[in-house]
């Protein structure tokens, strides 16, 4: 058993945990966390699986993963802004409008617009 095997197994476990998180999460931020975990697992596999060159990881996958990390943080930042906006508009942070009320906890029954509706509701102009 070598280090590579250990890290492949770890990546698989993390991927599975991410899948579990994605399936069970009601809150959008939890889904984002789960997706980020899965991405990390993929990145780990990308580095561990290709052959090492002179005892170091192949530079090409390293560059790919570095690119992937920056894309991941960009996407996450954008998704968080979208989540905050959606939360303002609908008052809860679940994706499905017809979500199981128990999952929304305290916001049950608050079906219409969110608690801090702004002046420029809708897509209209200022």
């Amino acid at each position: 058993m070598s280090g590579e095997v250990v890290f492949v197994l770890a990546a698989a476990a993390i991927f599975g945990l991410g899948v579990h998180g994605l399936l069970t999460a009601g809150h959008i931020m939890r889904k984002l966390l789960a997706l980020n975990l899965m991405l990390s697992a993929v990145f780990l596999l990308l580095i561990v699986v290709p052959a090492r060159i002179d005892g170091l990881p192949d530079p090409v996958p390293q560059a790919l993963v570095l690119t992937g990390i920056v894309i991941a943080v960009s996407t996450t930042a954008f998704a968080l802004a979208l989540m905050v906006r959606l939360f303002r508009r609908q008052g809860h942070a679940a994706i499905h409008p017809d979500v199981d009320p128990r999952m929304l906890g305290h916001v049950t029954g608050r079906t219409s617009a969110g608690p801090q509706e702004e002046h420029d509701r809708g897509s209209g102009s200022r």
Partner: peptide
Amino acid sequence: DGIAALTAAMRYLL
């Protein structure tokens, strides 16, 4: 910026 559009955008993104 409607709830439906934002929800759709979020689902598409995820």
